[in-house]
Simulated assay, not measured.
Amino acid sequence: MKPSASPLTTAEIAALALSLAHLGSGPQADAARHGLRHAFEHLDLDDDVVSATLSTLTAPLPDEVADRARTIAGCITSRLVIRLHYRDVSGRVTVRDVDPVTCMVHRQHWYLVGMCRMRRAIRAFRFDRIIAAEQTFLPARPHRPEGFLPFQGKRAA
């Protein structure tokens, strides 16, 4: 008998979901999203949050957001600073360099979580508010995802 596997960590789920986000549609993408749904069935999480979050995780992103998601994923994987042109909730646009750590989904929204060099603090950037995302050639400082999730109320060391 095979021993039961430990559940996926939040950072592992975020990485898998980000990989799926920009797959688009088609047989591979559908199979991968079904696998993610199956993984969620074995986690002990709040049902309301899970259903809203799972719906967002398994829906393909709009093309322009998917393009930015690929850039974000590349920067996380390559450990490079990402330059964001970001529109905040009040409509103000800023350009920020961010040490990307991970991505997450909460209910209906995708977020990039990272260390904002402008604010010198951990921030979450909603994908649909990112106007542009550019890879830089600056190495990002290492940050462990576990220290950033959930991101609310955390301060940089």
Score class of each variant (00 low, 15 high):
Asp67Arg: 15
Gly147Met: 09
Thr58Asp: 04
Val81Trp: 10
Ile13Ala: 03
Leu80Val: 10
Arg33Thr: 00
Val113Ile: 15
Ala21Ser: 14
Leu57Ile: 15
Glu146Ala: 14
Val89Trp: 14
Thr58His: 06
Gly91Tyr: 11
Val95Gln: 13
His38Arg: 14
Phe137Ser: 11
Glu146Met: 06
Arg126Gln: 12
Leu16Ile: 09
Leu61Trp: 04
Leu18Phe: 04
Ser78Val: 00
Gly153Met: 09
His106Cys: 01
Arg92Thr: 13
Ser4Ala: 08
Ile131Asn: 03
Leu54Gly: 04
Ile130Trp: 11
Val50Ala: 07
Ala17Met: 07
Ala21Cys: 02
Arg107Val: 01
His42Val: 00
Arg33Lys: 08
His106Thr: 06
Asp44Gln: 13
Ser4Ile: 01
Ala11Thr: 07
Arg107Cys: 00
Ala157Gly: 12
Pro139Gly: 01
Leu80Glu: 13
Ile122His: 10
Leu43Tyr: 11
Ala17Gly: 04
Arg83Asn: 11
Arg126Met: 10
Val98Tyr: 07
Ser90Thr: 14
Thr102Val: 14
Leu18Thr: 02
Thr136Ala: 09
Asp48Leu: 14
Pro3Tyr: 05
Ala69Asp: 07
Ser4Arg: 12
Ser25Leu: 04
Gly147Phe: 12
Phe125Glu: 04
Asp30Cys: 03
Val101Ala: 08
Tyr86Val: 03
Gln135Phe: 00
Ser51Gln: 14
Arg96Asn: 08
Thr9Pro: 12
Leu16Val: 01
Asp128Val: 01
Arg33Leu: 05
Phe127Asp: 01
Gly153Val: 05
His85Phe: 02
Phe125Val: 03
Ala21Gly: 09
Ala59Val: 03
Ala52Glu: 15
Leu149Glu: 06
Gly26Leu: 09
Lys154Trp: 08
Arg119Ile: 01
Cys75Lys: 05
Asp44Leu: 10
His109Arg: 15
Ala132Ile: 01
Val50Glu: 06
Thr102Met: 13
Thr94Cys: 02
Val65Pro: 02
Leu149Ala: 05
Phe127Val: 01
Ala17Val: 09
Ile82Thr: 05
Thr136Cys: 09
Ala5Cys: 00
Cys103Leu: 04
Thr10Phe: 05
Pro145Ala: 08
His85Thr: 13
Arg92Gln: 12
Val93Met: 10
Asp97Arg: 15
Tyr86Gln: 06
Phe125Thr: 02
Ala32Asp: 10
Met115Tyr: 15
Val98Pro: 06
Asp63Gly: 08
Val101Trp: 12
Arg129Trp: 12
Ile13Pro: 02
Ile122Pro: 03
Ala14Ile: 03
Leu57Thr: 02
Val113Pro: 05
Val95Cys: 11
Pro60Leu: 03
Asp88Met: 07
Val113Thr: 08
Asp88Phe: 09
His85Met: 06
Val93Thr: 14
Ala21Leu: 03
Thr136Arg: 12
Met104Pro: 00
His106Leu: 08
Pro3Glu: 07
Leu84Ser: 07
Ala17Trp: 11
Leu57Phe: 13
Glu41Lys: 15
Leu23Val: 02
